[in-house]
Structures are given as C-alpha cells and as structure tokens.
Design a protein around this nucleic acid. Sequence first.
DNA 1: CCGCATCCGTTTCGATACTG
DNA 2: CAGTATCGAAACGGATGCGG
Lengths: 202, 202
Amino acid sequence: MPTSRSYQDPCGIARALDVVGERWALLVVRELLLGGRRFSDLRRALPRSSSNMLADRLRELERHGVVHRPHPPAYELTAWGRDLEPIVLSLGDWALRHVPPPSGPLHLSPVSILLFLRGAVRPGPPLTVRLDLDDTTWTLRVTPSSVVVTPGPPPSCDVSLTTTPLQLNDLAADRFGPSLDHALATGAAAVSGDRDRLRTLL
Amino acid sequence: MPTSRSYQDPCGIARALDVVGERWALLVVRELLLGGRRFSDLRRALPRSSSNMLADRLRELERHGVVHRPHPPAYELTAWGRDLEPIVLSLGDWALRHVPPPSGPLHLSPVSILLFLRGAVRPGPPLTVRLDLDDTTWTLRVTPSSVVVTPGPPPSCDVSLTTTPLQLNDLAADRFGPSLDHALATGAAAVSGDRDRLRTLL
DNA sequence: CCGCATCCGTTTCGATACTG
DNA sequence: CAGTATCGAAACGGATGCGG
C-alpha cells in the first residue's frame, strides 16, 4: 500500500518532500534520469530495495506526476520529473565533497557511474561508444556540442567497452590511464575498436 | 535512538540521502538556513514533528557534520550544511511549479516565508525592516548589493511589520499592494515607520 | 519553561515467498 | 517478467516524565 503521509506544510520544500522525500524515491528518479527503465531494471539497479517498496514508490511517483508510462512496461520521468535532474546531481556533488565512501560490499548501478562519466566528458569531435555494464548496454555519444548517454546499444560505434560499473568508476577516476591497461590485462575490462579515442575522452 | 540505516551505495546521490534523506532532515536544514536556532524554535517551526524525532535528527546531522553547536543551546549549519542552501531552495521552486498546495489547517514557518521573501526582494537603496512573526523577531536588510535576513531584531529600523507567516505570504504574493491595506484595517497586520518604503520592496 | 529521554501504539520498511 | 502477499523489524509520532 503506497505511503500517503504529508508534512502538511505549504512551503515548497515540504511539498517537494511530500513527493520525493520518501525512502528510495530519489534513487528511483536517479535510475530514470538517462531514460525509461523497466521494473526489473530498477530491481537490478537497487538490489537493496524490496519489490513491494519499489512498486509502492513507482505508484506514488506516478500519482504525483513525476513518473509516467507512455510505453509500458517501461517507467519514464515526466517533463516535471526530468526537472529534478540538476537538483539530484547537485545533491550528489554536495555529498562527494565531504561524505566518506561507505564500506563493506558495495554496489554501484550503471546509471550512477554513467551520470558521473557524462558529467566528466567534454563535448568534442564526434565519437560513439558502446558500454556493456552488468548485462545492460548503453550508448555514449559525443558531439562538438553535447555529451549524451542513452540506454540500449548504438547502431554502430567507434569503440566498445565491457566492464562492471565499479571498475568503470576506477577507470574514469584514472581518466582511462594506466589502470585501463591493468584492467585489460587482468580481464576486468575489455575494449574493442579505437582504444586511443577512449583514452582521450577524459 | 538515532537512525543508522544506509543505502550502502557509493553513488554521491545515495550518500547524500544517507545524511539528509531521513524524514524531517531537510526541513530541519531549512529552518537553520537563516541562522542558528534553538531546540524550542525548531519545535515551534515544525509542530507536526515529535520531540524525540527532532532530537534524533539533530544528533544525526551533527554526527554527519551538517550541523554543529558553536554557541549552545543553538544549533547551526556547518559550512558544508550551508552548501545545501541552493539545492534546498531549488527543490522548493521545483515543487511550486507543479504541486497543488495541501489542504486542511496549515502551518507556515517564519523561515519558509522569509526565504521566499528574501528571494523576491531585489538589492536596492539601503533599508532595514524589522519583522515580528509568531513571537519571533527577524531583520531584513537591503543594500545596493545584497538582501539579507537574519534572526533577531535590528538595533534600529526604517519600518517594522507585525503579522503571521501565512498572512505575510499573502501580502508578499500581492507585492504589498491592496491586501496590505486590508490587513492593516482588520488588524491582521500592523506597520510602524515608513510604510511607503515597505510597498516598494517588491 | 526548556531540552531532551522514555514509553508505547501505529506506520513504514525490508526480506522472503508467491502468483498471473 | 511484473508485480502481490505476508510477516518480523525498524522507524515514526504522540504522550508523558524529569532534571536544570
């Protein structure tokens, strides 16, 4: 049964929290920032959430107009939901300025690292990269005026990279430097196509 | 006992929510945005929260480094906590773009309306306003280069306004136009000093 | 009165199992 | 695959207590 409690406060901040303040809600939004995903995609991306929770949150977000389903079974952000993007990304930047990373066995969703990667890549000469992360495939497209990441494979690509989100995080932190060679040597990552273009991404 | 659950997700967004994602946390931050407040101030501003909840949240926020207490018994935001200001204000703007106001008996905290008012006032000729809202007194200071709202009364002021936060919200929505005359006539607001300067604020 | 701590009923969360 | 059902654990919310 979806949550229906409210702060009963006319302030915009409280009203925003009535919509996206429940547990997991903003992480569901994060997972939808790069495009529509299905229920099972969200479960894989948020493995520590439970299925009834996810179902509740999606229903609430849909009821409030943050999420809709123009092409079931996929869930997508509405235009209003997409307006959360800069806010959610700012929250992430804010935390990274001070919060020590949690310890223990960690899981990083493909969307998390792709949002970070997209933010670190500058527009430049056209380049299409295919990324295979945890059984999902993504397209990173660079043009002189934009950097776009979308779900699904590109029709064709200049270079493709297969690895895990956590490994890609390390590679990106190193700007595809020496750690890339090491990962390729140990099989933690695999590249086909124009490897040098990949190195110049960051 | 303070909450200690974590999303166990190294993504910055999840880490931010580990710190300020629990219920009431961001509303406590909102209440501290204009300066240090005491426990009882926070209780008055957030009357629908419970005292143990508030104590828990303050302890958690202090432990995480968002809040500190340089001058007990007041609670203040740390520099990191103050960095949340643009994010929290953006969330409020986001909600006001689409969320219908909640119904029923509503409570608007002085800080909520003062944040909104401060955002609506442009820098201009120097002016100091004393605001008495719900038994707390505030100072609004306009200079050619800034608009600042601080807790506590000013040493001296050009004009002072006494009313309720909800009433002030209405007056500000009307840019201190006809509704001000009506409020003054009915006693819903009282002004002393340079009333015309007040009218030109917005 | 202020600044909490404690107790306790209710709601939400989270894990697991299950169904169309 | 896309959720629902169930149930114990945790968090929330209100009331009350208590030292300073």
